[in-house]
Amino acid sequence: SQMADLKSLAKHMFEAYLKNFNMNKTKARAILTGKANIPPFVIHDMETLRLAEENLVSKQAVNGIQNKEAEVRIFQRCQCTSVETVRELTEFAKCIPEFINLDLNDQVTLLKYGVYEAMFAMLASIMNKDGLLVAYGNGFMTREFLKSLRKPFNEIMEPKFEFAMKFNALELDDSDLSLFVAAIILSGDRPGLVNVSQIEQMQETIVQALRLHLHSNHPDAIYLFPKLLQKMADLRQLVTEHAQLVQKIKKTEADTFLHPLLQEIYRDMY
């Protein structure tokens, strides 16, 4: 009966994941492997960037950034996507059993510290070694183009590609990722949590469901579960370095603007 409960929990989290995230690995892989009806528009230099800006993204979202430097425009659009993903992650978190019954300040803390780790784990789904999907899968920005941007903007994505290549080698699917993301959110050691034991218990249940699910979904990958636990630690490091880089950009780049929601998340983070 306990195993049946864990299986139904896995199913529930997978459904919540499909419902709340606009993009997922199945959709992304179809586009990246050329199975989509329309192949994504490739952004590989300043000219193709301009073309994509004119044709792929809504004009409404670009208010005030059209005349800024390419690096700044890309940075601002990354923020739009991040804000949207934080909104999706919040809705997904609310679907985790008992999450909405937690102390509201603890819910905030779990999201504050969890959203970027979850975001970088899911970012791997839309990446391959040559680039990543942008504009809801209608565009593909090359890794080389991102590397060719001026400092410090060229340093933002490369560590995420390096993580993604190792993470993608584990060949997780969306059902695995749904439990992995839930486990990241329910970390009982985030600074300032009040009801630690309650959150630890919830995470334990999700982690058990993940272990059981991996066992049946990847019967031949015997070390997959411990490898994933290691990835949770790697993601913390990735977010710490990302937060430091964003602080640096905020200080040194007068032309950049940090969205209020992201400011809330980064403030006093690490």
Partner: peptide, 20 residues
């Protein structure tokens, strides 16, 4: 609470708009 008012709002009201 004031420090994280948008996160609070998102948690309590999913329809609240958050635009860039």
């Amino acid at each position: 609470k004031e420090k994280h008012k948008i996160l609070h709002r998102l948690l309590q009201d999913s329809t609240s708009p958050v635009d860039l």
